[in-house]
Amino acid sequence: MKRGMALAVGTLLGVAAMAGHARADGDAARGAKQYRACVACHSLEPGSHLSGPSLAGLWGRKAAQADGFIRYSKGLRAAELVWDENTLNAWLADPEALIPGTFMVFRGIKDDQARSDLIAFLALAMAPGGGDAVVSQGLVPRDYVRGQKPDPVRLAPTDTVVTRIRHCRDSYFIATADGTETPYWEMNVRFKVDTRDTGPEPGHPVVLRAGMAGDRVSIVFANIQELTQFISEAC
């Protein structure tokens, strides 16, 4: 083992030891309530990644190995961690202490019992078929398995299908398939790309309106090339 890797592994083991071993009296039902905070970033559907990777089937597997997820930090990729009671205990106590520079924006759970409860739930949820198991046992609703996955936009109504976007001074004018053109302040417009099969049809970007008055919008494209195809400078 190279010296740098040996030092890294030694540091990780030391942090895990300081966090202590996971308690054996965790309650999965209480942990399910803790898991509610996780659904914004994770799903339990295999291959369905959100801002964080899907947790499906990761129990007992090496960290930073979820199929199809590429946004891992260098530290986590190099850590050689396997997700189990003790590594999750250290991770959930303080992710930054375990993996400096981690991309996971989470301060950690300081309460030992709360951490133990969540790990008891994750032992079920992260096992193969865990999403279905925790639902069938009544621990979480089906929506928790899906997480906060964006709704499909492939079958969008005509008033949301974008045909042209022109920029003029401090405004974007967004034309849609129903024949209307609506102006928006440029600072209230976001451009996004959704390459999943639930994203928009290629060549048919979709506008998603938000804000109390619908004055904030996201334009979702099927691929990066469409950004230049649909947007022009025209007053």
Rank of each mutant, 00 (worst) to 15 (best):
A93T: 07
R190C: 02
D143G: 11
Q34P: 02
F103S: 05
A125S: 05
K110T: 00
R154W: 07
R115N: 02
L208Q: 12
A93L: 14
L98A: 15
V135F: 07
M1L: 13
G10N: 14
R61P: 00
L58P: 00
L92N: 06
G60R: 09
V135N: 04
R196A: 00
A66Y: 01
G130E: 13
A16M: 15
V39S: 10
L124P: 05
K33F: 06
G130H: 12
T176F: 02
L122S: 10
L139R: 09
L81N: 01
M212E: 11
L124Q: 14
L139M: 11
L12K: 10
A56L: 10
R169C: 03
E233D: 08
T176Q: 02
L227R: 09
E80I: 00
I99H: 04
L118H: 12
Y35Q: 04
T11H: 13
Y184F: 12
S48G: 00
R154G: 03
E85S: 10
G199H: 02
A64R: 09
Y144D: 12
R190E: 08
S48N: 14
W185M: 02
A175V: 03
I109C: 06
E80A: 15
H21D: 07
E201L: 10
R36N: 02
L50I: 14
V134K: 10
V162K: 15
Q229C: 03
D215C: 00
Y172A: 10
A120N: 01
G10H: 09
G57N: 02
F69G: 02
C41L: 08
Y72R: 09
G147K: 09
A16R: 14
D67N: 04
I174H: 10
E85L: 03
L55G: 05
K110G: 00
I109F: 09
V39Q: 12
T195V: 12
M18S: 06
D143W: 07
I224M: 14
G20N: 11
G131R: 11
